[in-house]
Design a protein around this nucleic acid. Sequence first.
DNA 1: CGGACCCTAAGGAATGTTACGGAGGGCTGG
DNA 2: CCAGCCCTCCGTAACATTCCTTAGGGTCCG
Lengths: 223, 223
Amino acid sequence: MHTDASRPVIQAASTPRRLGSPAMQGPLALMGTPFQYARNAEIYGEGDEAEYLYQVVSGTVRTYKVLEDGRRQIGGFYLPGDIFGFEAGETHSSSAEAVNGAQVLIVKRSAVMLRAEREKDLSQQLWDATTRELQHFRNHMLLLIKTAEERVAGFLLDIARRTASTNSIELAMSRQDIADYLGLTIETVSRTFTQLEQSGAITLATSRRIELRNRAALNRLNA
Amino acid sequence: MHTDASRPVIQAASTPRRLGSPAMQGPLALMGTPFQYARNAEIYGEGDEAEYLYQVVSGTVRTYKVLEDGRRQIGGFYLPGDIFGFEAGETHSSSAEAVNGAQVLIVKRSAVMLRAEREKDLSQQLWDATTRELQHFRNHMLLLIKTAEERVAGFLLDIARRTASTNSIELAMSRQDIADYLGLTIETVSRTFTQLEQSGAITLATSRRIELRNRAALNRLNA
DNA sequence: CGGACCCTAAGGAATGTTACGGAGGGCTGG
DNA sequence: CCAGCCCTCCGTAACATTCCTTAGGGTCCG
C-alpha cells in the first residue's frame, strides 16, 4: 500500500531559464513568456500562490499531491499544448514538476482573466481547457478502481491517443511516475508490462519504448 | 476488486416534478426552474446531451461512471448549494441521480453562458464552482490511494465539514454508495465503521447517524 | 411477510513488501 | 580515451498483507 517515503530524493535542479521568442500556438500563445525547466525541476509547489497559468511547449510536466508519509498521487501528465495550473483559491492545491527538460509558457492569471472578459474566444478556450481537465479527472478516478492490468492498458492507450503516435510510444516518465499515476507500485507496473508483453498485447523495445501490438486486446482491458 | 454487477437494480423512479417558486440563492438562483426528483431518479445519464446546469436546493445528488461489468465509481455527492453538470463537450461524461428525494434547480447552459458574458460576477462564480470541482477531484483521487480506514475517516470529515454540522452526521447515502465513492466494498466499509467505533473515534447511533467522538484521531488518519 | 439494507466471519485472490541482481549512463582519476 | 565506480532505474521472485469474495443471518420498514 505504502509507496514509501524512502523514494530517492531529488536534488534542487537548476533555476528555470527565461527564453527568447514565444513560438507556440494556443490560447496563451501570444501572452506568455517561455521558460525552460530542467528534469525534475519544480514549477510550483502545493500551497504556493497561484499567480500564473502554464502551457507546455515541449517536454512533459507532472502534477501531484503527496501525503505526509511520502505516498504520492500524480494527477496528470501534461504534454505540449496542454494547459495546467488552474486553481480554486489563491494557492495551488497540487505541485508541478518537469518530468524531463520542459519548455513552459507562463502567463499571469490576472492578465488572462482580464483579457478573457473582452475576448469571447479566449474565454471559451479557457473554459474548455478547464472542463476537459475535469473530464480527465473523472476518467482517472475510474481508472483507480480497476485491476492493475486494466490500469496499465488504459494508461498506454491514453498516452498513445494524446501523442497521436502510430503504435509506438516513447514514455517520458519513469516506472515510479507511472506507478504513482496509476496508484500501484513499480513492481506491479513492471509485472504488468511483462504480462502484457507475454500475452502479445505490447512489445517492450526498450524499457521506455513500447510498441502496441494488439490494440483490440488493450481496448478490451480498458473496457 | 469487482463490485459486481449483481447490484440491486433500481427501478425507474417517478418522473421529475416541476415546482413553483425558485427559492434558492447562488449563481443560478434567479434563472433556474426547480424540479423535484424521487429517490434514485436519474437526473441525466452518461452520454446524454449536456444542455443544462444544475444546482442542488435540497437533498443529495450523486454523480458516477460505470464500467461494463457494473463496477461503479461515484465522483461526488452534491449537497444544497452545490452546482453540478459541468462538461467538456456536448454530452455528459458521467451520470447523475438523486440519492434521496432532491430538489434541483435546472437552467439552460446556453442561457447561463450568454448571461455570463455580460455579468462579470456570474462568470466569476461559475469559474469558482468549476475550479472547486477540480480541487475536489484532486483530493478524491488522493483518497483512493489510501487505506480503507483512512478513506472512511476522510469521507466522514469531508461530509462533516460540508454540512457544517456539530459532531453529528446524518448520512443520506447507503453503504453501497459510500463504498463506490471510496473504491471499497460494502463489507469493508462496514468493518471499518465498527473498527472506528471500537477505537473510540466515532459512535454509530444508527447505521445512518454517526457521531464524531475523536476528531483528532480522524484527522490523524486523514493525514 | 418480503425486500432493502446492514453486519459478521472465513477463506482466497490481488496487490504490496522486501530483497536482490543486472543494465545503463555519467563522473572521476589515471 | 578508458577503466572503474557509483547511482539510478528496471526486472524478478518469495513472502506478507490488505481487501475482496462468498455465505449467512439480523434488523428495519413498508
